[in-house]
């Protein structure tokens, strides 16, 4: 391995995390695989109609143990989603569970089915 490749290996790789988008009655859920990212290592931003998730997982490879087989390393996750008007942007909630980020996007009030009473 040349020196260049070695330094590339140590740098965190930029990864677009795999995601699921689910529709449920109360709204939408976006699930993202971000293994290794702790709660304070994640940032979620909403700018106009774009939601961006970023997170990073840095590996401490300075320990005494000698790495003999490696399939993953430090990672920088980033992914954006475009929100529709059906989403209530003020009430987006996020939970992180075993390396999976669950974004809950509630339906906007206007997008909820509304019953119209007949008067008179």
């Amino acid at each position: 391995m040349n020196k260049n490749a070695a330094t590339n290996d140590a740098a965190p790789r930029r990864v677009v995390p795999a995601s699921d988008i689910l529709e449920r009655e109360e709204g939408f859920h976006i699930l993202l695989d971000v293994p290794g990212v702790a709660r304070d290592g994640i940032s979620i931003e909403v700018e106009e109609n774009e939601l961006t998730v970023r997170g990073s997982y840095a590996r401490d490879e300075t320990g005494g143990a000698r790495l003999v087989h490696r399939e993953f390393g430090g990672v920088e996750y980033a992914r954006s989603f475009t929100l529709t008007d059906m989403v209530d942007r003020e009430n987006i909630a996020a939970t992180l569970n075993h390396g999976v980020l669950d974004l809950f996007l509630p339906r906007a009030a206007a997008a909820k089915p509304r019953r119209i009473e007949v008067s008179g």
Binding site: A18, S19, D20, I21, L22, E23, R24, F28, H29, L31, D33
Partner: peptide, 8 residues
């Protein structure tokens, strides 16, 4: 739920 995208 109903999957709109499934990559995971």
């Amino acid at each position: 739920g109903r999957y709109l995208r499934n990559e995971r």
